[in-house]
Design a protein around this nucleic acid. Structure first.
Lengths: 195, 195
DNA sequence: GGAATGACAGATAGCAATATTTGTCAGCCA
DNA sequence: TGGCTGACAAATATTGCTATCTGTCATTCC
């Protein structure tokens, strides 16, 4: 019934569009099929369930954010403390921008996070790995005090929950958040710095 | 219609009971009046609205928690770092216990927090004041590095959101929370300690 | 033969009529 | 007279009915 072949990537893009327009509550797989001009049975050929579709959209969406974050840390000539500050700042900025500019997709992400979906676990694992790598570097180079990088990374992520966890998104509209996040980041950097 | 005089305190107690049984969604002021054996008009003589009633219950409930916390910090012979650790630990323990043992009342507190009720603002102000006092003491005594106590107190509260903010309550069931909270507290204490 | 369709059953959401609740207030009664 | 009552309007919640949606699969169509 259509010229182009129907593949998973096309379906994910259409789903992203539907989610952006209707939000996670109202979006249906019938909407997705209608947008693609196919029957909903065809969508189920590529994805086993509506939940899997949602997850695929958010997985791709987070992959792009993660690419940005990885790039932010690669800036040359930065010491571990500066790299950690850059990573955390970039992470907050990315989340805040998404919550503001793409509220419906962000709401979908929030739903997955509350459901403990594997997609959000993977995202947390990515963030922990990035932090841990910088922390390990910093310990090796003498910038940071000795310690277990895994434990420290988790503590850093936990201490910054308010600025990146989607459950706090409504608070990010306040104009003080940016200053408060900087104060927390400074506190953390002081906490792990070598004495 | 009843022997005893009806006063605000009695109504608040009855409302607490109704909230505990039915939760913030299902509880009605008609339930409260029924439990007291009076008409709902009598309840409205003492409280202007259902919202005011809810707030009075949670205000009293938080007052008791705050008394406990204030006591935890008064322990004699403790240095400011130890007092700060004791305060934060007691604060987490109090919240976790309430969330577990009194889930419906805690859910009511959560609703007020999300609505930015003056009750929850007052609670935050109390916590900030307690932390600020200890921080100021610590700076004066040379235990903590110089800095603005108000700003540091806010950073400490923000960095521990995950362990006391009601929006994170579902995560408190995980057995790792306690260890993770200790790691964050240690990180924070390191961050403000004098070098 | 492999992809797409559309009919289908069970689950879920929307809708409109109904019932309950919130908040007010004139009057009651101790 | 001062607290209490219960009738009331408006707002909100509940109910039962109908629509739509999810997920499956036998059938159709290149």
């Amino acid at each position: 019934m259509r010229g182009e072949p129907l593949d998973a990537e096309t379906i994910v893009s259409a789903t992203e569009e539907v989610l952006r327009r209707h939000g996670p509550e109202k979006a249906t797989v019938l909407d997705v099929a209608r947008l693609l001009g196919v029957s909903h049975g065809s969508v189920y050929r590529h994805f086993p369930s509506k939940a899997a579709l949602r997850e695929a959209v958010i997985r791709r969406w987070l992959d792009r954010v993660q690419e940005q974050l990885a790039a932010a840390v690669q800036a040359p000539g930065l010491t571990p403390p500066d790299r950690l500050r850059a990573l955390l700042t970039a992470m907050f900025a990315a989340k805040w921008a998404k919550a503001r500019e793409d509220p419906e997709l962000f709401a979908t992400f929030r739903v997955l996070a509350m459901e403990h979906s594997s997609v959000s676990s993977a995202h947390i694992a990515f963030l922990l790995a990035q932090i841990r790598a910088i922390v390990a570097d910093g310990i090796a180079g003498g910038d940071f005090a000795a310690g277990e990088p895994e434990v420290i990374a988790r503590a850093v992520l936990n201490a910054t929950s308010r600025f990146h966890h989607p459950t706090h998104a409504p608070e990010w509209r306040s104009p003080e958040v940016e200053a408060e996040s900087e104060d927390v980041v400074s506190l953390i950097l002081n906490g792990i710095r070598a004495r």
